[in-house]
Amino acid sequence: MVHRVMEWIRTNQGRVLLLVVILAALVSIDSRTADSAVTASQSTANPTGRWSPYVAGLGIGLLSCLSFVISNRPIGVSTAYAQTSGLIGRVVVGSQIDEMPYYRTVRPEIGWEWMLAVGVLLGGCISAVLSGDIRFEPAPPLWVREFGSGVAWRWLAAGMGGFLLGVGSRWAGGCTSGHGISGALQLVASSWLAVVCFFIGGVSTAFMLY
């Protein structure tokens, strides 16, 4: 039985039908959310120009496909941080950085991943400017409401959080984009395990903080 289903799905006809079924399910979800999305965005601080999460997700899914076509690479951001720390290290301590075993596997260089990270900065800025959602905030409003306006604490927490993201993303071999989206969509086993652990750690920490 399972074998027969697999045989059928192996045909192009099966694949196309499968795609149509899943897309139809998604579209039905999206039409249902049109009204609930409005209430959700109203409850946040600044809903300016925000898209339905399904539209943003659809865009990221298609962008992942495009990335495979043009560059045959998955989208992932955390490698660029390791490359940047290596580049900074090379300036500070010299070329012995390149002898370190880790930087022999992840070469400190300005390549595809690094340009991707620069692009994320530009893209975030372009989107915020176009929708009027650009605000210079030393600390997020939610943090200020909960912990007061002493921004130094927020900066300390952000720095510590960033440190753990740096260690954890390299330890696990990827981050929310590399494992969480790109690895998961390729059905890579380690990526699904990693993303579950990301959320277990994140949810526990958020519940302890708030």
């Binding site: 893209g123 605000r135 997020p140 954890g168 395990l193 993303v195 994140g202």
Partner: peptide, 28 residues
């Protein structure tokens, strides 16, 4: 590694990609 990442995720409230985008929107 995933659990260490998760604790950082909760403490920072951004992930490696979204924090670059957050800087682009002015979140200092």
């Amino acid at each position: 590694g995933g659990l260490i990442f998760g604790v950082g995720f909760g403490l920072l409230g951004y992930c490696p990609g979204t924090m670059i985008g957050a800087l682009g929107q002015g979140s200092l």
